[in-house]
Amino acid sequence: MFELINTLLIGITAGSIYSLMAISVVLVWRSTRVVNFAAGGLALASSFVGAAILEKTGSFWIALPIAMVAGAVFSAFIEYFFLRPLLKRSGDKGAEIFLPIIATLGLLGIIKTILNYIYGDRVGSLPPPMSDKGFVFSGESIALSPMRLLILGIVLLLMISLTLVFQRTNLGLSLRAASFAPEISRLAGIRVDFIRTVGWAISGGVGATAGILQTTNGSGSVSPESFEFSLLLVFGFVAAVIGGIESLIGAVLGGLTLGIILAIILMYVGGSLVFIAAFLILILVLLLRPHGIIGAKGGRRA
C-alpha cells in the first residue's frame, strides 16, 4: 500500500513537470501551428541560465524568475527570426508540417552544440532549494518531501496563472482569438504577428520552469547531453499529443496520465519498458480518440 502511494506521488510529481513541458509545446502549436522541438533546447538553455544565477546569488527564488524571463526571450527570438520568416513563405502542402518540424530540430541541434561548446563537460548545478527528505509517517518516510510539495505548488500556481491570463485578460482573449482565427482577429484589429511572438514567449517561460523543476527533481545538475532533458522533451511532447495538442487542460491530463502510468511501470515492471509504454499509451489514446483526450475535431475550443 505504502509502495503504491509512493509510486503515485512520484508519478504525479514527474507528470506535473511533463505537463508544464506539454503546455509549452501546446502554446507554440496554438499560436503558430508548429511542432516545436526546439522547446527542449530552450528549456535546457534556460536551466543553464538558472544555474548561473543560482551560483551568483545563491537564491533559487531569484534564479527561477530570471530563467523564466530568459526562456521567454530565447523563445520569442526564435519565433521572430526563424519561424516567422519561414512561415511567411508558405510552402507546398506535404512539407507544411514537416518543414517547421525540421527547422526546429535544426534549432535544437544548434542550441545543443552551442551549450556544449560553452559548457563542455561542466554541469550547471541546480540543487533542491528545500529538503528532499520525505515526510515521515508512523516511522516510514513517504515519497512526498518539502521539495516535491514545492514543485507541485509551483506547477499549480503556474497553471492557475495561465488559466487566469487566458480566460480573464485582454491578452488572453487576443491569444485565443489569434490562434483559432488569425484572419478574423486581424480584421478585428489584433496584431496577430505580435500576439504570436507573445505566445512563444509564454511557452519559453513555462518551458524554462519545466527544465529547472526537472533538474531539481532529478539529479540536481544540468548538462547539454542530459538524459533528464531527453525525457522531458519526449514525454512533454507525447503528453501534449495525448492531450490533444491544442488544449491546456489536455496537456495537464496528458502529463499526469503519462507520469503516473510510467511511475507504476517503472516500479512494478521494469525500467527499460518505460519508453515503449509511453508509445503504447499514446497509440491507445489516439486509437480511441484520434484527436487526443480533449479532442478538437469539429468543435474547437478557444
Binding site: S174, R176, F180, S185, L187, R300, A302
Partner: peptide, 25 residues
C-alpha cells in the same frame, strides 16, 4: 472594418468575447 464572407465570427469564443475582440485595440 471588414466583415468577411460567411458569418465571420470565432466559433470557440463566447458572444461577449467575440464582441469585445472588436474593441480590444
Amino acid at each position: 472594418s471588414h466583415v468577411s464572407e460567411g458569418k465571420s465570427v470565432i466559433p470557440g469564443l463566447t458572444v461577449s468575447e467575440n464582441l469585445e475582440l472588436g474593441s480590444l485595440w
